[in-house]
Design a protein around this nucleic acid. Structure first.
Lengths: 155, 155
DNA sequence: TTATAATGTTAGCGTTGTCTAACATTGTTC
DNA sequence: GAACAATGTTAGACAACGCTAACATTATAA
């Protein structure tokens, strides 16, 4: 499949996300969701339709094709991973984390995405739940101080 | 000052970086460094000159103005912070980390940059040097296994 | 059912930023 | 200093992607 631009990936992801809630996705939904005009959506969707990523009849609903779903899910997965890192780990607010995740999702190397995922996995699979150093970091963010001296290996 | 595009920020940063080594910066240096043609550099530089960010006489050397230096240093600082996170912390290779940092540096919210900086500070100011959990993470990256059970608070 | 509102499409424009090709200047070498 | 190489500039094309304005279709409500 031809390489998609950032904008096209955004359209695909938006269709997926909207369709998680709305059953039918229309041009106006996408325009609202992405903050662009309907005419811009129309242009973008035409391209995606011509390239077999969406089905769309004039004045009708928009639907992802099998291939479109595949791509959209990839993009959405990257978005969620980045969001988790920015929001759950770095503690950024929901809107900032969501927007930055959206901007990062198109530019990062696959290796970087994988590595971030590894990092989140490292935290989440900690045998004792949230690791102490992470609590310490979050409290460091709030107070500017370390709540405890750094941890040492258990004796 | 007018808001600069990603491309313009890249030109400014590149001038700064090159001038750290070369004393004189020329159009060809920038073209090599950024992987674009000289004609593209010429266009970009003209804009920057018109907006008081660089000095450049036809067929001459390129120099940042005071304002240009200010902006370039900001961009470079973001780049270095991101690089440190991607390379030193996540353990990504130098080229991947450098390139992704370059892509991220233009899109992240100031809050996100600050927060990343905080995180790096949290690690670097650990009283005992590199925290054990970080070593554990790096070894987790290599082996896929945790070298130790998670740390507990000292008794 | 007809007027109006909402929605969707198309054409055409502006911006950004790259490129190629042609031309201009400067540097180098004999 | 003449010829050639290296470097720099300009003009013009193209791609992406947003926009406005005008028009087309569909939905809604009187």
């Amino acid at each position: 499949m031809s390489v998609l631009t950032q904008s096209k990936e955004d359209y695909l992801e938006a269709i997926l996300v909207i369709s998680l809630e709305k059953k039918w996705v229309r041009v106006s939904d996408l325009a609202d969701y992405l903050g662009v005009k309907m005419s811009s959506v129309a242009t973008g969707i035409r391209f995606l339709a011509e390239n077999g990523l969406v089905n769309h009849e004039k004045y009708g609903y928009i639907e992802l094709t099998r291939e479109g779903i595949r791509v959209a899910k990839q993009v959405y997965a990257r978005h969620k991973t980045l969001y988790k890192f920015l929001h759950d780990f770095l503690g950024l607010s929901e809107p900032v984390a969501w927007r930055d995740a959206c901007r990062m999702e198109h530019v990062l190397d696959a290796k970087t995405m994988k590595r971030l995922l590894k990092f989140l996995e490292f935290i989440e699979t900690c045998p004792e739940g949230e690791p102490l150093w992470l609590s310490n970091f979050h409290s460091f963010l709030k107070t500017g101080k370390r709540p405890e001296p750094c941890l040492r290996r258990e004796k």
